[in-house]
Design a protein around this nucleic acid. Structure first.
Lengths: 71, 71
DNA sequence: CTGGTAATATAGCATATGCTATACATTATT
DNA sequence: AATAATGTATAGCATATGCTATATTACCAG
């Protein structure tokens, strides 16, 4: 699975809006939107912020990334 | 005291090079250099990364920021 | 003294991000 | 039906960042 899809999947699982996730990650919601729609590649720091967020919510991101889902 | 000076002060107190601090904060060393020399204003996420780093090293940044030192 | 290395400062370019505005869809409410 | 509010997608512009290269300084080994 691709990063953009993972962001969206995690966000929807937690029932968050793009704005709410943005606040949790200390970025703007336009950035979240661009991630989900594949317009940019997140910076290392931003990715770390996302991964840390997933960890603190008990979501295994690396497993999601490895998964076979087609997007 | 100003953010740029705080970064440098914290870094020197911990005896780190710009590169080493950069790795700890998940940014590039050119970014650290630009912070210390006042060429840019760090992003919210980058500032948070720095403040978290200070906390984990038991450095009271907010106190430094309030201090009277002229730079 | 000469050469090498590390740390720092700076520049240029490509890309990511923040902010604002706009457009569209969905859902609520009246 | 009409309106309002929320969530999402996108665009443009200014700024921050990553990467690479270059210059300078300091320090140390030879």
């Amino acid at each position: 699975m691709v990063f953009s899809s993972v962001v969206k999947k995690v966000r929807l699982e937690l029932k968050l809006s793009q704005q709410q996730l943005a606040q949790a990650l200390n970025v703007s919601y336009t950035t979240i939107n661009r991630w989900e729609n594949g317009h940019v590649v997140p910076s290392n720091l931003a990715q770390k912020s996302f991964f840390d967020f997933c960890e603190s919510n008990f979501i295994n991101v690396s497993q999601l990334l490895k998964s076979d889902a087609k997007n």
